[in-house]
Design a protein around this nucleic acid. Sequence first.
DNA 1: AGGCATGTTACAGG
DNA 2: ACCTGTAACATGCC
Length: 289
Amino acid sequence: MPELPEVEVVKRSLARKVQNLIIQKVNIKDSKLRYHIDKNKFRKITGLRIKKIERKSKFLLFFLNKNFIMMVHLGMTGKFFFVDRKNTKFKTSFYYNIDYKKEQKYDRVEFILNNNQKLIYNDVRKFGFIKLLRNKKYKNNFHLKHLGPEPLKNTFNYTYFKNYIKGRSRVIKDILMDQKFVSGLGNIYANEILFLSKVKPSRKVKNLKEFELKKIINFTKKVLKNAIELGGSSIKDFSSSNGKKGSFQQHFNVYGKKDANCSNTTCKSIIVKSSISNRSTFFCNNCQK
DNA sequence: AGGCATGTTACAGG
DNA sequence: ACCTGTAACATGCC
């Protein structure tokens, strides 16, 4: 699920639900996530209060007291659910319509909170992870240390872009998905941004014109903001609708749209699919130069 | 059965 | 030491 907009939406719903609550117990149902979860280590956070939740790139940081930080990455299929004592369905707004009974077997970690609820980390493919860090040095964390600027901050700008691509021979889509260049984009939004910017995903960065770089920057910010407002993209489970569920997938121009007509009404081409950096790449051969 | 999937990174080679 | 591309991780679905 999770590129920057989805993680941001999850962060906001988590902040509403669990801020200031106390973790009374941690139940590790499957310790084999991307990184092994050490039960003894996680025992240290029982009794601690969740003071604040922040998003950094695609990472969630739970600031606890006693200077602990719980860092979560959702990988490809990580989700949070809330379940009350009677096992009634609750979940973050992002996954509002999921059938929790079916999902339950992928629950990996449970956090028992002091309000009769459990916060559940659920992850089918187990590419996600949960780690404990110490507040003092969390910025030196391996994962966080080399992240590029947040795309929505003004440190992600034309000058930065121009300088970064100097002497690099990679293609633009590959760079956009590189967290060291800009942190938070993934395959879906990279495809969508390049369509709106009218730039072919396979263009070498060194050949991009100034106006194209500027367009890419501007559409990056525009698309991400728009997606956050719409609750992110839910590319599964969007059969019925309610006000809280992510709907940006309805605004995709190219992602997953192989053979569809180009959304530009004056264009008669269809969307084609190729592969860049081992990821599905969708674009319009006519509109994107 | 085989290919594909919203992500990251270890590794090999230049 | 830096840059780049590929394969691998775990699991389900079409």
